[in-house]
Each structure stands twice: as C-alpha cells, then as structure tokens.
Design a binder for these strands. Structure first.
Lengths: 357, 357
DNA sequence: CTGAAAGCGCTTACAG
DNA sequence: CTGAAAGCGCTTACAG
C-alpha cells in the first residue's frame, strides 16, 4: 500500500479523513487533524500530484510561456526574468506553481501551447510576446482556459491583457524633443514578430503627425537587443544627407554602441544627437551623459499579470474584481542628459563635422 | 462522457484500443489505428495529463530549477536562457516537456524542490547553481528521482553532474599572464553562494602557487554581473600601493566598466592592465582592445545536461551509456588583445600615472 | 488484434 | 465528525 492508503492504515482512519485533514476541510476533529498533520510531516507524505489533479480536475499550476532563442538575439531574457519573478511571487502566495514553458524558436509555438492546453496540464496561462495576429489567442479563448496576455493583439477581444504604455512613452518622448526644437527625429524598432514593435512604430508616426512632422521612412531603423546595433544606428543616421538630430531607442542597451560610434565619429551624444531610451535597462545606466528613459518595474508587471490571471481562475477569482484586466502599465520618465539640448547646427552633415574621406 | 470514453463510444471500439492506438502499441490493427488517429486529430482529443500520469506512474516532464532574483543582480539570466534552450531541444526530441521551475530568492530553495519531488510532479530534475554544501543533492539522492546538477558540490557523490572547466580556464589564464611576465595577478569572484565562486577562487590560488607566486588577499575582488562593478575593480586595483598588472575576470561583462574607469584614470586596458575574461559574453564583445576570454556554447551545455538526465530515466535510458556523467566542459581560449603585453613599468603606482589630487 | 476489468492515488457527495 | 464507495480519465495485464 502506498500514499494516502498507507497513511490511513497506519493511523487507523479512513483515507477520506486524511484527505480532509490535509486539505483544510473544516469538518474534521481538531485532534484528528493534528494527528494526521503530524504523521504526514513525520512520514513525509505529500499527495501525489497526478492523482490529486485527476480527482479535483485542477492542477494548481499555471504556465508562463516564453519563446527562447539565444541565436537571434532578440534577447528579451532580462526582461522576462524580472517578470517571472514577480508572477511567481504572487502565485506562491496563492499556493500555485508557476511553470515556465520555454518554446524553442525551432518549434511551432501554436502547437506547443496547444499541447499544454489540451492535456489540461495547467489551470491558466500567461502568454508572453503576443503578435499582431496571434492564433494562440483564439486557441486560448475557444479552449476556455483562463489566460492573460503580456501584450495586446489584433486577434480576439474581451480577454485579459496587460501591456506597456508605448503610446504614453512615445508621446512624452516626442513632446520633449519637439519642445527642444527637434524635427528630424528617428526611431528604432525591434526585430521580430512581436506586436510591440508595430505598436511602438505606430505611436512614433502618430506623434510626429500630431506635431505636423512628416514621416521619413529612412529614420525608422530596426535593431536587436545588442549593444552593437547602436553603432549601426549612428552610421545610418549620420550617413544620410538630411540627418536626424534626435532618436528614440526601443532597446536602451543600444545606446552603448550608439555613444561609442558617435564618439568615433567625433560627435557627442546629447549634443550632436538627442537620445531617448525606452525602458531603463541596467546595462546602459553607466553611460555618460545619462540616457533619458522610462522606468518600468518588471516585478510589478509580473505581479499584475499574475493577478489578472488569478482573477479568472475559479480557485482564486473570489478575491478579485470581475472585469477582465485590460490596461497599459504607465512608465515614468527618468530625465537624463542625453536629450537635454536643442539641435546643434541643424542641417549640418556629419561629414562636415567628422570627415570620413 | 468525456475524454477517451467519448472517443471510444463514437468509434465503437474500447477505450483500451484507443489507448493502444494512440500510444503506438504494436498490437493494433493497421486500419483501426488509422481510424483512431484520424478521429483523435479531428476531434482534438489528447489524453488528459493527470490521468495518464496516474495510470503510468510517470509524468513525461522534467524540471529545470533556477533561482530567480532580479534585485541582487547575480543576473545569470543570459546564461540560463541559453542552457534552457539547449536542454529543451533535447527533451522535445524525446517527447518530454521541460518545465522551468523558478524559485524566488525569498523562498527556501530546499522546500521548493522538495514539493516537486514528493508530489511526483516531474520524472527528473536538472538542478542548477549547486552550492558547495547543498542539502538538495541529498534530497534528490534519497528520493531516488533521476537528476543531474549543473555544477559540482561537496555534498553527495556518485551522482551525475556537469560543470565548467574552471580549472582549465584558470590554468590557461595564469600561464599566459605569467609567460608575459606578470606576477601581480588579481581575480574577481562572483557574489553569491554558488559553488563556482569557490571553485574559481581555489583554481586561482592553486595556479598562482604552481608558479610560486604568493597569494595576496587584496587581489581577490568580489563582483556581480554588472558592467559597473568593473569600475570598482579598477579603483581597487589601482588605489593599492603594490598594484596588480593583470586580472582574471569572472564576469566578462565587468570588463566594460573596467575599461571605462581605467581610461578615466588615464590608463589603457591591455597596456596598463592585462585582462582576461572568463566566459565570452555577447555584451562585452564590442570592447577594444578585444577581451581575451574563453568560449562556451550554452546550448551545448544544456544539451549535455539533458542527455545526462535522459540516461537515468527508465523511459530513455536504453539509448545512453550507463555510467553517471561527471565531467567539466572544456572551454576554448579566444585570444584577444587585452592581455597581449608584458607588465608596463611594473611597480609604478597609479597616482604616478594619473594624479588623483 | 480486441475488450472487460482492475488499478493508478487521490477527492467528495452521500449516509450515518 | 467519520467512513464506505464512487469516480476522476487514463493504461495495462489478462483472457480470448
């Protein structure tokens, strides 16, 4: 005999009583419960996960899907570690396990998700890196499993999502730059299929338009989460005739390469090019002049996502409001010195400053 | 009726036949199997995870434990993402799920692990970040669950582990530096309780000893995985009277702050201080002079760990050798320019070079 | 090759 | 407050 049956035999009570005692069912004699708890502790008894899930119909675990892909260096790693930490903390408070489900880029992320859902392997899903069109959201909706997405999508509606306030960040950024006299403002957008790339770019276009500035496609550059990609940005911006005087970076870390290449060209960040970073990343915090950017607590984001999910799960819903969570987390401006000044000698071309010949 | 029973009713066969057909049991008529497979596909039937696990006694999933802790910035994030990718790829080939189990720093990592083991939630464990004394290894051994650790430990023996060849790296590093005439050689060791810190430092001491160089505790510095911590290293090394002429860094990324601070002090990396980085990290690859370091494929490491685990699991052991895997992954020297020269004016103090007054 | 039946280890109405 | 029993949805000897 194993498991609960063995414990029952040992204590001379039924398995039902053991189960009740262990699960906090109030209909158990105080002394009985104490005896059971002690015995379980002493013998190291813990209910078998599979049997429990089968009997209860729930797993007490939630999945956090992430796409993993070291090679292509979209490298959102640091981002997700913080978010996961936040989410896991909240889940632990509710005695739920957070299982991170890594999907390799070589696998189909739809099929991958489908397997976990159809096998009822988790009670809820936090779906990261939504795409502009994302079949996974339809899958989640039709399956009926509670879920929340990290990121909006054009697919589906009425579901819970949390996203970053790209629009607010871009509005603040463009307003600052325009107020300082900038008109030739560039932007970098992330490589990859995630929706936030499209959102960031759209916000950029709309805010320029709002100020009556025409969009120049040449000022929209694509970067990966790489220090080096900033160098490419510097080259692109300063090799053009009507050069930019300001740029909003999606990956703040690219500021490192950008600063370096600017200086190699005899230019000074902040003076010859106004720079605003999107999210405050630790790696870029040492730069001087300091990069103006926006603060985001990854832990808070993870905690918010976890709560949005708990609000939908039968087990925990009672403690949360009923309306599906749908909002953009505001990000707080962290003013630096990288965008302080007005455009220097606007219209002067890089080659006049730092001869390339 | 739900699940397999419904499918059975629909097709007019027993649930046993369905189960056999779906699980690749050879004792099934070809046409029957085809019919079942098609029906399952069409109706989206997938066996319930919990029921299957309960009946089979296995979960077909393995856990990869990681400690997660954004705040303290040990930030081994980038490291583990690569390893996880490698491990997950191998597991997927064997139709096993890799579940990443994040343990927050605020939780007790022993209890955390114990829960997953005692509930039989996974069939195997990849344990990361072993400590010099690690009760978790005893727990794993006594529980009988197949496991492999990423990192050695003084606890337990005879179990499977994979580690990095810290000793080889340190031997090569010290040999190179000594061959160039260096005698005052510093080292940085990682903050935290992981065993690799202790191993790295021990290897440092032993290799200096081998060359008859006395150990100076002042040359052993602690760093986190932070660009900035390199600046602190520069200060520490050059503020002392008998300054170091060379340093071996545990976190290559600290080279960024180190280079910067050296230059602020009017010193040149590679010339005034020979520098060797441990693992080749993407973030530091843009530095000039290029940092001499050692290459490690994180994916390969993850794949090796996964295979070491599969070798112990009843389901997959047949395809692997029987002896427990126990070895250090060699790392290949990537010669750079940061440690090229001999000590410059050994004994000259920093203040003579760059007056601080 | 197939089915009836037992069993995996729990939980939970139901009856007392 | 407690127990006997059914049931969760699968798999797998066993018998044919």
């Amino acid at each position: 005999m194993r498991g609960i049956a063995r414990l029952a035999q040992e204590l001379g009570v039924s398995t039902a009583t053991i189960s009740r005692a262990l699960n906090g069912n109030p209909n158990v004699n105080k002394d009985t419960r104490k005896m059971v708890l002690e015995a379980a502790q002493r013998l190291g008894y813990v209910a078998n996960q599979a049997a429990r899930s089968l009997a209860q119909g729930i797993t007490r675990s939630v999945g956090f899907t992430i796409e993993i892909d070291q090679q292509s260096s979209t490298s959102t790693d640091f981002f997700f570690m913080g978010v996961i930490e936040g989410a896991q903390t909240v889940m632990a408070e509710h005695e739920l396990d957070l299982l991170v489900l890594p999907c390799a880029k070589s696998q189909d992320h739809y099929t991958y998700l489908e397997r976990f859902i159809s096998r009822s392997a988790v009670d809820g899903i936090i779906l990261a890196e939504t795409r502009q069109n994302d079949k996974r959201i339809e899958l989640l909706q039709s399956s009926g499993i509670p879920f929340v997405t990290l990121g909006r999508s054009d697919t589906g509606n009425g579901y819970a999502w949390i996203d970053l306030d790209f629009e607010g960040v871009m509005r603040t950024s463009i307003d600052r730059l325009v107020a300082n006299g900038h008109r030739r403002i560039g932007v970098t957008v992330p490589l990859g299929q995630a929706n936030y790339g499209a959102i960031f770019e759209r916000a950029y276009r709309e805010n320029l338009k709002r100020h009556g500035i025409e969009i120049d496609p040449a000022l929209v550059l694509t970067t990966r989460h790489h220090e080096d990609d900033g160098a490419m940005v510097a080259d692109a911006l300063f090799d053009m005739d009507d050069r930019a005087t300001a740029i909003v970076l999606f990956h703040e870390v690219t500021a490192i390469g950008l600063y370096r290449r600017l200086r190699e060209r005899g230019l000074e960040p902040g003076r010859d090019l106004a720079i605003i970073g999107f999210r405050d990343e630790q790696s870029a915090r040492f730069l001087s002049p300091s990069v103006t950017c926006f603060h985001l607590s990854l832990q808070d984001l993870g905690m918010a996502a976890a709560r949005a999910l708990l609000a939908q799960m039968p087990l925990t819903a009672h403690a949360f409001p009923k309306e599906p969570v749908q909002y953009c987390v505001p990000m707080e401006l962290v003013p630096g010195e990288s965008d302080a000044g007005p455009p220097v000698r606007a219209g002067v071309r890089a080659k006049d400053v730092a001869p390339v010949s």
